[in-house]
Computed example of a mutant assay.
Amino acid sequence: MTTTPRVALFVTCLVDLIRPRIGFASIAALEAAGCEVVVPEAQTCCGQPALNSGDRKTAEDFARRNIALLEGYDQVVVPSGSCAATIRVHYPEILEHDAAWFPRAQALAAKTFEILAYLDEVRGWKPEGVALPTTATYHDSCSGLRELGIKRQPRRLLAAIDGLELKPLAGAETCCGFGGTFCVKYPAISNSIVGEKTAAIDAAGADLLLAGDLGCLMNMAGKLHRDGSPVRAFHAVELLAGMGDGPAIGEEA
């Protein structure tokens, strides 16, 4: 008999504040994949901004809080490669000196997954009855690609959507220039990087831009909009949950 995993959805700050549709799409996809989904109400930031800014003490505080909150679930799923990597890769690193918390960090890391990798590799799920006759191109976000090895998983999932044609993106693995706090600290450099990225996106000739990290998508969608591009941006899980016909990122009222 197949057991139903009790999965905690770690929503992430950006999804909660900027694009809740990604959270609802994540719940829909996880439930379709046979999971019982719980959204712990006490969840907060994963601590990535503090960690990236050198505030290790605050990052450790966030880590301990989230470990205590999430460790009781069968798995933890995150609709962001960078936030998932913070829990999966960096929590054990920053708590390795703490004999009490290090093994708990390791245990949580072992059962924390980025959502596209979880749906594909852990659940072996494919969307059924989802159709979207359009073209899309896919950007591989840095943390998901380099820290978690996410590359083929989203493309396998998206290939199951009827009518969706994936077009190759030149430099798909190249940074979009967001980089968390990098785009705030070095806006001129970030804008130059994203300009090269959006030029490649336009050259791909696709109607939609897809990725697995909202921060990257916001950065690229903003530049596309400022430059007058018709390309519309979505988190891949929105399409997988059949929500690709709604407002794109940046189009919400």
Rank of each mutant, 00 (worst) to 15 (best):
L95S: 09
T44N: 13
G180Q: 05
L240V: 05
P127N: 08
N219F: 08
F62I: 00
A84M: 05
I150D: 01
A160D: 05
C35F: 01
K167H: 10
A253W: 13
M218P: 12
P49L: 04
A105F: 02
D202T: 13
P49S: 10
F10D: 04
K57T: 15
P20N: 15
Q75W: 06
A107K: 11
N191E: 15
E114L: 05
F178E: 10
P5E: 12
A221L: 00
R156W: 13
L224T: 03
K111D: 07
G177C: 03
A110I: 01
P230G: 10
P49D: 14
R88H: 15
V77Y: 05
H225P: 01
L9W: 06
G149V: 11
L95M: 14
A131W: 06
W125P: 04
P230E: 15
D55R: 13
A241Y: 08
F178L: 15
H235V: 08
L119W: 03
H97G: 08
L17T: 12
V15T: 12
S143R: 02
D120P: 08
I18P: 07
A236T: 06
K57F: 10
H225V: 12
K111L: 09
T134L: 12
A172C: 05
C83A: 13
V237Y: 05
E121F: 08
V194Q: 03
I193K: 02
P133W: 03
T3K: 09
A136E: 12
C176T: 04
S141G: 12
L132G: 04
L108D: 02
G124F: 03
P49M: 13
